[in-house]
Design a protein around this nucleic acid. Structure first.
Lengths: 126, 126, 126, 126
DNA sequence: GTGGTCTAGACCACA
DNA sequence: GTGGTCTAGACCACG
């Protein structure tokens, strides 16, 4: 199963679903054009309410990962573009990481090594 | 003022206070051993509820940034160590960034350039 | 092809078909009296359900754009009149645009310039 | 009451709420910084479910009309900017109006007069 | 008290 | 069958 949930955690379920799908794309488990289960089907599969899945799909659509076709349900977008909104999202995370690192005296080289390993880990999984 | 708040945003205020203090440390505005205002004082200064500041201080203490002494109040920890918990927090952020980047087809070199600029930006501010 | 569809969008397909035909008339690609494909033929051509095309044609007929003859099939109406119903439809759209513009502080001159460019754009295409 | 609903129509209730608020801003009934009722309060007032109002508020927030403060509820944004997204929304409506007008043979001068009257009507109400 | 989240179940539009 | 909308009622995080 592509989607893993932690019902006890603080992260909203719809966010976890969203993140799982994005991670699956990054890992190559889902590719451009691939179909996703219907909202109701996925809800049954992972044991949550339909509306929760619906909200996750809406998020993915807003972020450009998903395109929803009235006829055939949801699919991964054909063209996953690297627009400004995505870049901003990425930089926000990097900035938070850099602040934590720099405040603890981590060297730049160690930081960059960590960055590289995070990226390389995805390449291997793909 | 070290602490900047966005009351209208989605990020909880206590989280923003926590992040502001960590950012101030990274920028050199706060150093190891520096005193922080009392919970009550800071609450008045930035116009938020006392419980909110209290929660932020508790978070900072749990993350090892703050040491709270009943007599002398709150101070930045004398030794800001780079322990495993910190590394895990940093890596989690990097991982999230890498996933968003890789899923959109960003190249590794562009990703690392972005990482470097995030880190360098802090060096300049310090 | 006169009709362009965006299956992933929020606009219903029958509405898109209807709008495409009206746009084609505005652009001069379709003129008064011109024949249209049969419901079945068009459905096959653009790859949608026959009922969907049927609904679009019904809309066009209701709005006075189409006249449907049992023998000769569908044709663009011989006389495209500018009656009150059409004026109301136009004004409704203009009103929505004006509200969005005025609420954001757009000046009247900028608004009218925008109106003019929207109209002129059609003249050039025609 | 600022908000008027048509429960029988095709327009979703949350959309009608959204449009009513925007119209109220355009008419000067609501100004920058004005508070709005809480989600639950407004829901009771107009007799719809809380979630419906919630969705309307989320729309208004996404469109930049509303800013939601954790402490005091919702307020009209302090700065109603005229960004590209708003311009696109306005032009889309103008374009639809122009197409309907041009396809029926309306002259440019009559079209522009209609545009002007739509805008002026708002000025008078304000 | 505020909004945020989740559940359960229903009806409708679309295709 | 799909998603879109709405209702009803509950619990939690935040302040």
């Amino acid at each position: 199963m592509i989607i893993t949930l932690d019902l006890a955690g603080d992260v909203p379920i719809y966010q976890q679903i969203r993140d799982s799908v994005v991670a699956a794309i990054a890992q190559g488990k889902l590719r451009e054009g691939d179909p996703l289960p219907s909202v109701r089907q996925l809800a049954v599969d992972i044991g949550v309410n339909m509306h929760t899945v619906n909200k996750a799909y809406a998020l993915l659509k807003a972020d450009g990962y998903l395109s929803i076709d009235r006829r055939s349900g949801a699919r991964i977008s054909e063209r996953l573009l690297l627009d400004d909104a995505v870049r901003a999202r990425i930089f926000e995370n990097l900035n938070a990481a850099a602040i934590e690192a720099y405040s603890r005296g981590m060297t730049e080289s160690e930081f960059l090594t960590l960055c590289e390993s995070a990226f390389d880990q995805l390449k291997e999984e793909a």
